[in-house]
Design a protein around this nucleic acid. Structure first.
Lengths: 118, 118
DNA sequence: ACATTATATTCAATAAATTGAATATAATAA
DNA sequence: TTATTATATTCAATTTATTGAATATAATGT
């Protein structure tokens, strides 16, 4: 693949609302799939597919820890591109402030029943 | 359309090698379609279609002057996003230096037969 | 070994993007 | 008005993306 195609592959991976939402959910740090499932209200298989696209584009990587697989943004520079587009006139800036939580163990209800979400 | 969809529509429009190439060709300033036809080696109808996508995404606008329609980048901030992706490790930086030509009248061979290209 | 849990993959149906070919439009010139 | 030039649109065929459903895999616990 030449440079132009690799670049457009990255943009293509950003060209989907679900994948942008997933990236946003990873903004504060790595998250396991089950956490994303809860926070984003997407089904597991669907998340896994979208995460595979982001991974293929080189934007995220994953790390296994016991049962869970934690995904994280591997190119933090991507936020520059995302925020640039979001801050363009005519695009309403809607970067919900997210808690800068880092999880070694996922605290979402599904991972730890009874615990409240991060 | 909500904000997330508008953002992803912009990224989607960048997610195609031909459209990225077109944007690059507009980097130095507005160009008529026939110029792009020559410089990029794309057929007219094809260019027109891709330009429509970029226009729909809000990245370019056009201006008629006599026979020609000149397209220009209406959101220069987009270069921040483009360069950010291009400069990511693993993506070879290949921002061909382009002459910073501005054309009031297109100098390409097709527009002015016999004249050399900008 | 077997059951459970978290995640991934495969498959299929549908929707959307890509792209060439043909045709239409709009400005200009004769 | 007619012809020409630059650009746009429409149509159709093909490819690719989307997404749900079912199933597979891999780590853990008993």
């Amino acid at each position: 693949m030449n440079a132009g195609n690799r670049d457009s592959a990255v943009f293509k991976s950003l060209g989907h609302p679900a994948r942008l939402a997933i990236l946003d959910a990873l903004r504060g740090g790595e998250q396991c799939v089950c956490h994303l499932e809860n926070v984003l209200g997407m089904r597991q298989a669907y998340l896994s597919q979208q995460l595979a696209v982001l991974k293929e584009a080189g934007l995220v990587r994953d790390r296994r820890e016991g049962w869970n697989i934690y995904y994280f943004v591997s190119r933090p520079e991507i936020w520059v591109a995302v925020e640039t587009v979001r801050s363009m006139p005519g695009m309403q800036i809607k970067t919900l402030l997210r808690r800068n939580t880092r999880h070694t163990h996922c605290p979402c209800p599904k991972c730890k029943p009874g615990a409240e979400q991060a």
